[in-house]
């Protein structure tokens, strides 16, 4: 009930959700690809416009090959955080971790350009110990970069065995159940988790209880991502940002803000400063 004295407070309570709706959460999109087909069809200006339209304030972007990424970065250095993909063409995806050619390519790019991370790369289990995957972990250490790893639990463990101080963004949270993700986040203090291409944490704007527990336990360790693996998917960035904002209303505002953009900014924000 709103008595005379309480009326101002009640008014604020009523207004709070309205203010929230009118002021959409900025989004740090941690999982963007700008691959050849995308940059051929969608020049950097157009791509950047789509990100801005979605309210994406920063994005961790990789592309196959890396040229597209550099074009995008040049267009909007305030927005784009380039990540170096381990693929020259998509056909490298299943073999890069043993491919000396990829090793050379990565070393050349790292000398020439600035990055926030190496990835997103796909590698599972024992292949993380293959020569070029090992090199990538070492290069990340040398250049002080994140590893954006699309890998399984075993893969994450192997990365940290190679470099206990590695900083890893676990793509798609490994498509693992929330309990397992929490276990991994507890164990590894420099592991972060992205939620790209997952739907199991939220349906119709409501959070799954197990995922909510994960977000509440580790509000500083999750990020969202669209995963624009085709050119068409760039048109999904707006939709994805809005969808994320939708389920985040089911979280305390400060937790929502952290997952939406603050975690990304905190972790990557100081990188690539001129």
């Amino acid at each position: 009930m709103c008595g005379f004295r309480e009326i101002i407070l009640c008014g604020l309570m009523v207004l709070a959700p309205i203010a929230r709706a009118a002021d959409p959460l900025p989004i740090f999109d941690a999982h963007v690809h700008y691959s050849q087909e995308a940059w051929e069809r969608m020049p950097p200006k157009e791509a950047i416009a789509l990100l801005r339209k979605a309210g994406v304030t920063r994005a961790l972007v990789s592309s196959t090959n890396d040229d597209g990424n550099q074009k995008l970065f040049a267009e909007a250095p305030d927005l784009i955080l380039p990540s170096l993909r381990t693929y020259r063409t998509r056909s490298d995806m299943g073999t890069w971790f043993r491919d000396e050619g990829v090793a050379t390519y990565l070393q050349e790019r790292l000398k020439k350009y600035r990055y926030a991370a190496i990835g997103e790369f796909h590698v599972y289990g024992a292949d993380v110990d293959a020569p070029v995957a090992r090199l990538v972990v070492q290069l990340a250490k040398q250049y002080k970069l994140f590893l954006h790893a699309h890998t399984d639990v075993d893969g994450v463990e192997r990365i940290f065995r190679q470099d206990p101080a590695a900083r890893v963004l676990w793509a798609h949270s490994g498509f693992e159940r929330p309990e397992k993700v929490r276990e991994m986040l507890r164990k590894h203090k420099s592991l972060w988790s992205d939620l790209a291409f997952r739907n199991d944490h939220a349906a119709s704007g409501k959070l799954d209880a197990d995922w909510r527990a994960a977000f509440m336990e580790f509000p500083d360790r999750f990020m969202v991502g669209t995963d624009t693996y085709t050119a068409e998917r760039w048109h999904y960035v707006v939709e994805h940002a809005n969808w994320s904002r939708g389920w985040m209303t089911d979280l305390p505002r400060d937790v929502a803000e952290r997952i939406a953009y603050k975690n990304g900014n905190a972790v990557f924000g100081s990188m690539l400063k001129p």
Partner: peptide, 9 residues
């Protein structure tokens, strides 16, 4: 063209 397909799709 596998470029067009998601690795986990």
């Amino acid at each position: 063209n596998v470029d067009r397909l998601h690795a986990d799709g």
